[in-house]
Design a protein around this nucleic acid. Structure first.
Length: 584
RNA sequence: GCGCCCGUAGCUCAGUGGAUAGAGCGCCUGACUACGAAUCAGGAGGCCUGAGGUUCAAAUCCUCACGGGCGCACCA
């Protein structure tokens, strides 16, 4: 039983809910970040105090947070305001009594009571600076945590139809899904990544028809005057036709008929799927499993789902068809599962696929779907619930539209006309690093404009270079330091007292929390934001302070500091699937 | 008509019920005889679409408008 099971069924399925997962594994080796440790220690003092005063039931309202504003401490809590109605004590009076208990905490530098009843904490710099040491010692692991508690999660994303090239919104899903997978892995989830291939059904036959017509054109060296509606007209089918002829030189295109369409379609779909895999690999997105709808169908799983729904009484016959009574689970209307001609609707294999996901024992099942699928959310939840699985464990994130712009001008995409801007085009024009950064900057469910002019810029206008430049500068400094062949002094991080240095220490210490937050909220956009903040803090430090020219003990401390910053930028970029160049 | 997403600086967007709402781009002023100026310091720019409600506290939660986008098949 997981906490999310008790969560009320939310029509707003966007993953804004912040819930913990009961730890299953890894509790012995629990890593606690500096910020987590401070938070827990402060919270414990406060709850002990409240219990002592007879307000123990208010303890759940005590939260210790990173403030939004600078100047409100490293951590802050507003619990005194929140529990006022229960205690009937003026918040500031309560805090005056509580505060002395906090002074003894080992990480506490100062605290202040502010505003109507906030309590702000400044942590000891040297205590936070332990994070610098942790980062330098664990360059490949720093930032990891076990907030995921070892829970297993299946992420399905992209799942583009193998009937044509991938469009840019698939690229967004790829960037978001891949980054979530990387981050959740770092945060202690056991992640599996899946791509579901719709390689069955009518669309495959239609693809086969398109191929057959292109083969006919090739064979007769002509161009057809009319093209049937809804049959993929894109240029890519011509390329497939050429390839097909090379492999099958004896094919007689004039004899191809309806019976040949499925076979041709399967061949074409497989070619396109392989192209998808190649493009995604170039985008640094890899999957653990490519799940074939066709194999699912061959296994008989769809029919089993029909039976199961029927046995449970959720399938009724009406107008000669069999309907799933999804409306009793919150869907707008019932859905046809078996048409009056006996064939299955596309929904059935999808239902079987989701059943299979849960049967494989995943604690969480996360789907990233395209913007044209949001009408589909309720019915898939309905299926999950009807089959007896907790619907809250199916999380669906809708990846919203990407509009491509060139400055002010909208880049038109027309699927019907067969003209695309494909993910491949985007990679070629913008490059993987800027493309991924831009696609990750925005919340997945927000429609976004992608300005190709901005992404293509090589200069300072491009935020990804701003972040990468940090690492390049640090590499350069560290190389020069090694070339100096100076004796290494002992590291005394207490020498890092300037405000720019402190800011960097705080950010390095906060990195594990950022990873945890991205994982728990399924909100990748916080990562580029954090990286930009870190880059800004580093560049400000760098302009203000000398490193190699500093007095030896200070130099040694600053070298440790920038090494830790390098660890964080490199890891942070890596979690976004973005490179950290040593030179730019 | 019904459902979903979005509405925050000129533009693109962040924002965890909390304090003076932030960033990037664009605009204006300054800063290299310097470990990398792809940088830094500063400035201007806001009725958070509107109206009610809940709350000690609302950009954030609820209701209703308005505006933009996308879905609403015995298609996949």
């Amino acid at each position: 039983m997981f906490p999310s099971d008790q969560r009320s069924w939310r029509p707003n399925w966007c993953a804004k809910v912040f819930w913990p997962c009961t730890a299953k594994r890894g509790t012995d080796m629990r890593y606690i970040s500096r910020f987590d440790e401070a938070r827990q220690a402060i919270r414990r003092v406060i709850t002990d105090f409240l219990e002592g005063a007879g307000w123990g039931n208010a303890a759940s309202l005590v939260t210790v947070e990173v403030p939004t504003e600078h100047g409100h401490g490293d951590l802050t809590t507003s619990f005194a305001l929140k529990i006022r109605s229960q205690t009937q004590v003026a918040p500031r009076t309560l805090l005056e009594k509580l505060a002395p208990h906090l002074a003894d905490l080992p990480m506490m530098e100062t605290y202040e009571i502010a505003g109507p009843g906030f309590l702000n904490f400044m942590l000891k710099t040297a205590w936070l600076a332990v994070a610098i040491d942790e980062a330098c010692r664990n360059p490949d692991r720093y930032g990891n945590s076990d907030v995921g508690g070892g829970c297993s999660v299946l992420l399905e994303y992209v799942s583009a139809n193998p009937t044509g090239p991938m469009v840019v919104v698939s690229g967004r899903a790829a960037a978001v899904g891949d980054t979530l997978a990387r981050v959740m892995g770092a945060a202690g989830y056991q992640v599996s990544r899946e791509f579901y291939i719709n390689d069955a059904g009518k669309q495959i036959a239609t693809l086969g028809q398109a191929l057959a017509l292109r083969l006919l054109e090739l064979g007769q060296e002509c161009v057809l005057d009319s093209w049937p509606d809804g049959v993929y007209p894109g240029e890519y089918v011509k390329d497939l036709a050429h390839h097909y002829c090379e492999l099958n030189p004896t094919v007689d295109s004039k004899t191809l008929g309806v019976d040949d369409y499925p076979g041709l379609g399967h061949w074409a779909a497989d070619q396109i799927r392989q192209a998808h895999e190649k493009t995604l690999a170039a985008f640094r997105v890899i999957f653990d499993r490519w799940y074939s709808e066709r194999e699912l169908r061959d296994s008989g799983a769809p029919e089993k789902v029909i039976e199961q729904l029927y046995d449970r009484g959720f399938l009724v016959e009406r107008d000669g068809a069999r309907w799933f009574t999804s409306s009793q689970f919150g869907d707008d209307k019932d859905r046809v599962m078996v048409r009056s001609d006996g064939t299955l609707t596309y929904m059935v294999p999808d239902a079987a696929y989701h059943k299979d996901k849960f049967d494989r024992g995943f604690d969480y099942v996360i789907d990233l779907l395209g913007p044209d699928h949001h009408g589909y959310v309720n019915r898939m939840r309905a299926v999950v619930e009807a089959l007896g699985y907790p619907p809250a464990r199916l999380e669906i994130i809708i990846i919203q539209l990407v509009r491509l712009m060139r400055g002010e001008e909208l880049v038109r995409m027309s699927k019907r006309g067969g003209t695309f801007v494909t993910l491949e085009d985007l990679i070629e024009e913008a490059g993987v690093d800027p493309a991924r950064f831009f696609l990750l900057e925005r919340a997945p469910e927000t429609p976004m404009d992608f300005d190709l002019n901005l992404a293509t810029l090589k200069g300072s206008d491009n935020p990804v270079y701003y972040v990468q430049y940090v690492g390049a500068r640090i590499h350069s400094i560290l190389n020069q330091w090694r070339a100096m062949r100076q004796p290494t002094a002992a590291i005394d991080l207490a020498l890092l007292t300037a405000k720019e240095e402190r800011h960097l220490i705080v950010l390095v210490a906060r990195f594990p929390d950022v990873i945890g937050r991205v994982a728990l909220e399924r909100a990748p956009q916080h990562l580029p934001k954090f990286m930009t903040d870190l880059a800004h803090a580093f560049h400000a430090f760098y302009r203000q302070h000398r490193i190699l020219d500093a007095e030896p003990l200070v130099r040694q401390a600053r070298l440790a500091l920038i090494e830790a910053v390098l660890v964080v930028t490199t890891r942070g970029l890596n979690l976004m699937g973005i490179s950290q160049p040593k030179k730019m």
